[in-house]
Amino acid sequence: MDRLVVQGKTQVAEGVVALVLARPDGGRLPDWAPGAHVDLTLASGATRQYSLCGDRWDAHTYRVAVLREPDGRGGSAYVHDELAVGDTVGFGGPRNHFALVPSTRYLFVAGGIGITPLLPMVHQADLVGADWALLYGGRSRGTMAFADELARHGDRVTVHPQDEGGLLPLAAFVAGADEGTVVYCCGPAPLLAAIEDATAHRPRHLLRTERFVAADLGAPVRDEPFVLELARSGATVTVGPELSVLEAARRAGATALSSCEQGTCGTCETPVLAGVPDHRDSILADHERAAGDCLFPCVSRSCTDRLVLDL
């Protein structure tokens, strides 16, 4: 299974740690673009999605930031309290449902940890010479990660802690949006509802949002071996954590054409006949993942004891 090693762990705000992740062998990581997230599988077996907030020009590390959830359950408490430099986590993706579309003008609105996908976006908007502004809200200044990194952008960035200034002045912020301005917002559900209200008069495609979801996702992922059955030959092979499904299928005599072998090109797409796939690719949308009828065996695995593929 693809795993990443924790290369750095830094407190970046009250209740927020940033992790720097790398391949154990230091190799290139899959490419990504602003708005992308990775799935990280923690020791508890829980899979959580984290937006990438590092530098895509560094092909060898990813950075994510993790907020400690108030209820203290699941992944975030583990990341804060137990995960240490040198530990490894399982990973899938990256995937991007929140891509930065080309425009000459952007308005970014971040709520709390929702700053993470927007951080590489503002960097990129700056790089291409777009006109942009960021309104960044949080409970209090001390809880707002990366305000220091954003300071270099001067008055393009407005940091607006709620305990100092109340709710975000969204209506005023978007008032100057012209017909070419795209609004990006990431944060908790009430903020997204508020930005939808504030931009209700504008064409829908000019608002792009991503909800910060704290919930654990999907079936618990397993590290235990599972049985792979190749329907065409009837061959079966046990797949342990050290082996990809693709490699296991090849060892069992199947021909499975592949190319990138990192879940991005789509060449090895294979129909699933039985079992529940554990998707780790960068290709499928959520509803396609949920359908469970195909997988990319170069990176994806099985949630069930038995996985039957049309190979």
């Binding site: 190319s259 072998e261 090109c265 060449t267």
Partner: peptide
């Protein structure tokens, strides 16, 4: 032969988008 991994379509970010 398993030709997987050949670079006839390129590889990486610019790999032939029409390969399928």
């Amino acid at each position: 032969r398993d030709p997987s991994g050949h670079v006839g379509y390129g590889m990486g970010l610019h790999q032939c988008v029409g390969q399928h």
